Simulated scan of single mutants.
Amino acid sequence: MKPMARQPLRLLLAAVAAAAMLSFLLLLAPPPDAFLSAFLSPSSPYAHRPKLLFLLAGQSNMAGRGALARPLPPPYLPHPRLLRLAASRRWVPAAPPLHADIDTHKTCGLGPAMPFAHRLLLLLHSDEVLGLVPCAVGGTRIWMWARGQPLYEAAVARARAAVADGGGDIGAVLWFQGESDTIELDDARSYGAKMERLVADLRADLHLPNLLVIQVGLASGEGNYTDIVREAQKNINIPNVLLVDAMGLPLRDDQLHLSTEAQLQLGNMLAEAYLKFNSSRGSML
């Protein structure tokens, strides 16, 4: 690419990063107006119960851009034992869009986490509570998730807050990211090493050396190097990192974001991967 042709691309990436900073600030600290937060998101009677926790991280396809269909499909309906850690770090009933107060610079829709959770609820004990911890922000590249960067530090802080409020265990990190790393060749080529570093840092900082990470293989990309990022995802060969491949799932008209139908399928695929992993280890949910 010629130097002059690269300049508009760099400006575009800078604009995306600036927009995402709004969400970074919201993630780093809970909103100061606790009364308004409580009014908008009433707390749940299960808020201080131990939970099986799932960290939702990545970019827009994890946050969800699937259309908010009416009526909502059953796997997106609220459930008394399904909670969400709001931006205020309070537990509230989980209802889509899960990232509405996290990924604030775009309109959020339906992602894979609700159908994932509903699939697990079918197999959990009748008194077990699931806690979803949204952290994804659209348009972000993997370097923005490195230790010391706002997104990474916010995700770790939210994970710790989720465990502290009522206790429980982190079942897995659900990771769907990489579309923005297909724009520049250097980003695509370095993706695998950065992802492995991210996993190692999360495990160290959360004191969970065997933390399960389920990454979603890209179904699309913003640039020409999607295949390179996908190959990097497939070649990550460290314990307790699984790949669920979204390639072939239907996309919206923008040919970047998964449709609602695709998000439903992906949620079930993620649940099956989680269940199979635990079954092979002989462990309980």
Rank of each mutant, 00 (worst) to 15 (best):
W145M: 02
Q149S: 03
D169C: 15
E153Q: 08
D169R: 15
A164T: 10
V137M: 02
F176Q: 14
F176Y: 15
F176W: 15
Y152M: 00
G139A: 02
Q149F: 01
R160P: 10
G178R: 04
G138P: 13
W143G: 05
V173G: 03
A161E: 09
F176D: 11
A155G: 03
D165A: 15
W143V: 12
F176N: 15
L174Y: 02
W145F: 07
F176G: 12
E153Y: 02
G178C: 08
I142C: 11
A154E: 00
G171C: 14
G168K: 14
D181E: 11
A172Q: 11
S180R: 10
A161R: 07
V163D: 07
R158H: 12
E153L: 02
A154L: 06
G148M: 07
F176C: 13
Y152P: 00
I142V: 13
V163G: 06
V163K: 13
Q177V: 05
E179K: 12
W175F: 12
S180W: 07
A159K: 04
V137P: 03
E179L: 12
W145Y: 09
W175T: 03
I170P: 07
V173H: 06
A164V: 04
G178V: 06
P150N: 10
W175V: 04
G168C: 15
L151H: 01
F176A: 11
I142H: 04
A161L: 02
G139F: 02
W143K: 05
G139V: 04
L174D: 05
I142T: 08
E153N: 02
G148H: 06
I142D: 02
R147Q: 12
R141T: 13
V156R: 00
I170C: 11
G138R: 09
D181Y: 04
R158D: 07
G148L: 08
Q149H: 09
E179A: 13
L174K: 07
A162H: 11
A162D: 12
S180G: 15
